[in-house]
Amino acid sequence: MQVHHLLEKNSVANTFISQLRDTSVQNDRMRFRRNVERLGEILAFELSKSLDYSEKKVETPLGTATISEIDEDLVICSILRAGLPLHTGILNVFDNADNSFISAYRHHPNDDEEFEILVEYLASPSLKDKTLILADPMLATGRSFVNVLGALKKMGEPKVIHLVSVIGAREGIEYLQEVFPENSHLWIAAIDENLDERGYIVPGLGDAGDLCFGPKMQH
């Protein structure tokens, strides 16, 4: 799997990441969601440079222009619920893409730090020979992406898989590199070094779903 790390080079994305992490800013839910969405747009733009294109003719008021346009069938799949703002940002760029939604959440069966990833909902078109974009803002252990990939297998084999995340832990990225096909890509804004004992990214930003939409009862 090839990793594309956005913050290896300075850009306005630094500002959006800073505001997502900053406890004095992140409690503004609307700003938090919008910053996730804007990073989705930036990551999708970078991803677009790797896609296949074909030329087409476009008639203008003064003549004919030759334009290269994306020549791939795209499906954007978001992991609910934190993935929704990120999904919106990606869809803002790939507005003709098909869409898929899947649930994947941490279940603590013993009410302690041990957890498993459960998948309970899936709505998706066929993925056979499509370009699949899997979106989840936080890449911690990597288990959510792996479980989702397993659940999506019944929808057909995609041509290529692109993962899109805002912040990830190096441990989770290394795990995905072992599991996902070699021709897969990870597009990520920021990479942090550590996971804590609960499997949360450090320094990270907290629970992205709660910051987007408010706290939830634990399962």
Rank of each mutant, 00 (worst) to 15 (best):
H5R: 14
A123S: 14
R106T: 01
F115E: 14
N99S: 14
A65F: 06
N14M: 11
G168F: 08
L211T: 04
A189I: 13
T23A: 04
I117Q: 10
S11D: 08
F32H: 01
N183W: 02
Q26M: 04
V119R: 00
K216V: 10
A13P: 04
P215G: 15
A13V: 06
R21I: 06
T141K: 05
K130F: 10
V12K: 12
V179G: 01
S124L: 00
N10Y: 06
Y53S: 08
K216E: 12
A208D: 00
P61M: 04
H162D: 11
E72A: 03
L39S: 08
R106N: 00
T64K: 07
S78D: 13
L211K: 03
P85W: 05
E116R: 12
T60C: 05
A140Y: 13
V119F: 00
V12T: 07
G83L: 12
P203G: 09
A97F: 00
L127A: 13
V148M: 00
R198C: 02
A82E: 08
M30F: 15
F115N: 14
M138S: 03
D95V: 09
E41R: 11
A135L: 08
S165H: 09
E120P: 03
G156P: 03
K56Q: 09
P61K: 03
S126Y: 01
V164W: 07
V148T: 10
D22L: 01
G63H: 05
T23S: 04
G199V: 04
S103C: 00
L134V: 11
A190M: 11
R170N: 15
K153M: 10
P85S: 09
F32Q: 04
S144H: 13
L139R: 11
L74W: 11
Y121E: 08
A135C: 15
A123K: 15
N99M: 12
K153Q: 08
T60Y: 10
S48L: 06
H108D: 02
S68D: 09
D192H: 02
L20Y: 07
H107E: 07
F145W: 04
D22Q: 02
F94I: 09
E59M: 09
P85D: 07
L127R: 14
E157W: 07
S126D: 03
H219N: 14
R38F: 14
H107M: 11
H219S: 14
E55G: 10
L20M: 08
A13D: 06
W187S: 09
F213H: 01
T141Q: 12
A97C: 01
P109F: 11
T88Y: 08
G83Q: 12
E114K: 15
L84S: 03
L139P: 10
A123F: 07
Q26A: 07
N92M: 04
R34N: 13
E197W: 04
N10K: 13
L134S: 12
G214F: 01
K56W: 05
I102H: 00
L186H: 01
M155C: 10
P137H: 15
A140T: 13
G89Q: 08
T66W: 07
S103A: 01
R33F: 08
L47S: 06
V164A: 09
E55N: 12
L91S: 08
V119D: 02
A169P: 02
I70P: 01
N110L: 15
